[in-house]
Design a protein around this nucleic acid. Structure first.
Lengths: 247, 247
DNA sequence: CGCCAATTTGAGGTAACTCAACTCCTGTGG
DNA sequence: CCACAGGAGTTGAGTTACCTCAAATTGGCG
């Protein structure tokens, strides 16, 4: 990332959905060349977000969605008394900011967990364009719907799973998404702390750490700090599906 | 399905968003008369769902959204091993079925908790119409975004609140929504069992029952089975905001 | 009127939490 | 190059909020 003193650099001229290697994961899924060209004029800017910085905060006016181009984000909501909850982790090709549409203000914080870049998608223009192109309209609806379905999955996890099951589900989800992006599903580097994992999974960081250790003792994982090697994916899968299914 | 003996009756001729008393809560928020007339042609049928019956099930093909006209629903997802999780309760004016857009199949079950009626909104037509009317498009997007934000709130609840806080948040949410619909916020009848409340809140039914009893002992509620009277709404509010804020 | 599901309540168990000490990395400056 | 600081992670010991199992009670509905 062309790092000057501030590390921030915009490259509005080089943004192009039509030539983006993420286009089959991102908003432009299934668009024709015509449509891609129109998308290119709309998605005109990119924004760099250094590790630890926020892309937006709860309360900020909502103007744009953001597509992760490189890097890794978390989103968190917080209650009045300062408790906060990580609601998701986002990687390349995933959209940020959907929470802001309903009230014209963002309702959560989005924080880069490593130096990252996002494509800025002005929402008004996206709505205008999606009234022209039903494919784009449909894709936007699908993305929002899938976010709802994902959230329901997290509710199931938080509402009814034990610590080991939660961590197993989390790891499987991560490896699957990495695999979709061409990475090995057997080896990954966690971009988040134990505390952030714990917040997402409704556990304390010590419990996350202990569970990692247990998985290592059981020969399911090899854990070296944030470097994880998955030795027995099926064991993880079995944990998620519930051991009752093994009978 | 003109069911005489069971008391079920469809009235396709009388369905009309333009004359519906829920139009300020439901999809047509802020539409002009012109637009309402077009909506009327799209939302052409109503469907009755007797208590205990499903409106749709996970796996069913997704064709329509549904607006609750009368009655009360729950939605639940289930994992392979049979665990299930109530993901929400829906009352008049709220939309059901958004989960189905992403995969063209529903991903949860929707069950009527009392005899109910819904308006059927064919989704293809809704998309077509919302390409014509940006107000309708915007409203649909707002509804989906708010569902995402609501889900994040539930995650916060499940991930970081104690039993009393969860139940307090649940009751406040219910009374607020009832108040929006013109009911007293101090008195309500629960349409769901303790077990369903527990599933939604990530608690066992016994814990829900005990927490109700505790609230009654503390003078916060009067509990007679499913008839609840809220004696001290501020006490509930204080629980939700965290007692730390009281310092 | 009696049945059955829903709810309440009690007693004991346990998964996860809290608190605390220690270790391991990473980065920084002498 | 090494010393050191500080954040992140691990591990142990004791506690607790919620769960599990069980029994008693209530209330709605045929």
């Amino acid at each position: 990332m062309n790092n000057t003193s501030s590390g921030i650099r915009l490259e509005p001229f080089k943004v192009a959905c039509s030539s983006c290697n993420l286009r089959e994961l991102c908003l432009p899924v299934g668009m024709s060349n015509d449509q891609l060209e129109r998308l290119d004029t709309m998605v005109a800017t990119r924004r760099a977000v250094p590790r630890g910085e926020t892309l937006f905060r709860a309360g900020d006016p909502f103007l744009s969605l953001y597509a992760v181009r490189t890097g890794f984000f978390k989103t968190c909501v917080s209650s009045e008394d300062g408790r906060d909850q990580v609601t998701g982790f986002q990687m390349a090709g995933e959209l940020l900011g959907l929470d802001g549409i309903g009230t014209d203000r963002h309702t959560c914080d989005s924080v880069a967990l490593e130096d990252s870049q996002v494509c800025v998608i002005p929402f008004q223009q996206l709505e205008d364009l999606s009234r022209e192109f039903s494919d784009l309209q449909r894709q936007l609806h699908k993305i929002m719907s899938r976010e709802i379905v994902r959230d329901h999955g997290v509710m199931l996890l938080l509402g009814s799973m034990r610590a080991e099951e939660r961590l197993a589900a989390f790891l499987l989800n991560l490896t699957q998404r990495l695999q979709t992006r061409g990475f090995s599903p057997h080896s990954l580097i966690l971009r988040m702390t134990r505390e952030e994992i714990g917040s997402y999974l409704g556990l304390k960081l010590e419990t996350v750490s202990r569970t990692f250790s247990k998985f290592q003792d059981d020969g399911i994982l090899e854990v070296k700090q944030r470097q994880i090697r998955v030795l027995d994916p099926q064991a993880l899968q079995k944990l998620v599906n519930g051991s009752s299914a093994a009978c």
